[in-house]
């Protein structure tokens, strides 16, 4: 009896409160939807607008900005610089990380703590700080490399290597690489043969994931490119120049809208591929974090 009395008001309250809370929920999700979708819609409309200064929607629509942007020589060269920068970053990272991760699993466990501490550095420290330090350090030891493509590739490889390391190390754990390579050795394979015939084929999901993540990290990176890549023309650097030149060139914002969408499309496709490649598995990104997102940030 006492229990019934206690429950009755609760039930009544939740009955009338449920409608309220449902309305609040819809409002909340509607606001979130608008918050995430409106800016993207605005950029898309900007890339298609003839003139847009007074009305809610553009005065007219045109594809001229898309055509002009795709045909623009400087934008083409910025894209090709960014793509080669990102490709080299991914290749170098895979080339240096795979042997180290493999060796730390099969021969020398002492490698692991060293690499894990190093991998925490780009997560703890903002890229601006690393970039500025690299700028100062290269000024001391190799001033001739300042502002060059080579230095920027090295810098990007250094800040993107944790993505590759975690992806590759996770794949090695999943494949049970220690026992596989033991078996290969027992069958008389040389270390190189083991690596090529046994290890690499078995960690290919990790290689693809790590490669895509490091490519994306380099492609969208702005701070380091601006600080140590002066004189180069990557896509983010081009965008930064355009966002400052509203009054200079007519249509610069429209072209910036096109490039923003293209950049975004590249990054989005990469992250979709990563998700596709890791169906069912979680990508371990943060040490101990158990995160399943890509680390695209800044």
């Amino acid at each position: 009896m006492a229990m019934n009395a206690a429950q009755a008001p609760t039930a009544a309250r939740s009955g009338s409160g449920r409608r309220m809370s449902r309305a609040a929920k819809y409002l909340f999700f509607g606001a979130a939807l608008a918050y995430f979708c409106v800016p993207m819609a605005a950029v898309l409309l900007y890339s298609l607008a003839t003139r847009w200064t007074a009305n809610i929607l553009p005065d007219g629509y045109t594809l001229q900005w898309w055509q002009a942007t795709v045909a623009d020589q400087r934008i083409q060269s910025a894209f090709s610089t960014s793509i080669s920068l990102a490709t080299l970053t991914a290749i170098i990272d895979i080339a240096v990380v795979v042997p180290a991760a493999y060796w730390s699993r099969v021969r020398n466990a002492g490698i692991r703590p060293v690499v894990e501490v190093a991998a925490a550095v780009p997560f703890a420290l903002p890229y601006v700080v690393i970039a500025f330090g690299l700028m100062q350090f290269s000024g001391v030891v190799a001033p001739q490399y300042q502002g060059t493509f080579v230095l920027l590739v090295a810098g990007h490889a250094a800040i993107a290597f944790p993505f590759v390391y975690w992806a590759v190390d996770g794949a090695m754990a999943a494949a049970g690489i220690e026992r596989l390579s033991e078996t290969a050795e027992a069958c008389g394979a040389s270390p190189f043969q083991t690596l090529r015939r046994v290890v690499l084929p078995n960690i290919s999901p990790g290689l693809v994931t790590g490669g895509l993540l490091s490519f994306a990290a380099s492609f969208g990176e702005f701070a380091m490119a601006q600080i140590i890549g002066r004189g180069l023309d990557t896509v983010p650097l081009w965008s930064a120049e355009m966002i400052r030149s509203y009054t200079d060139t007519a249509g610069s914002y429209n072209r910036l809208a096109v490039v923003t969408l293209l950049t975004f499309a590249v990054l989005f496709v990469l992250s979709a591929l990563v998700v596709y490649w890791n169906r069912g598995q979680t990508v371990r990104l943060l040490p101990g974090g158990g995160a399943n997102t890509e680390g695209v940030r800044r």
């Binding site: 975004f264 990054l267 992250s271 890509e294 695209v296």
Partner: peptide, 8 residues
């Protein structure tokens, strides 16, 4: 949305 960052 998480992919949208930086200057863009």
């Amino acid at each position: 949305a998480a992919n949208f960052g930086g200057i863009g």
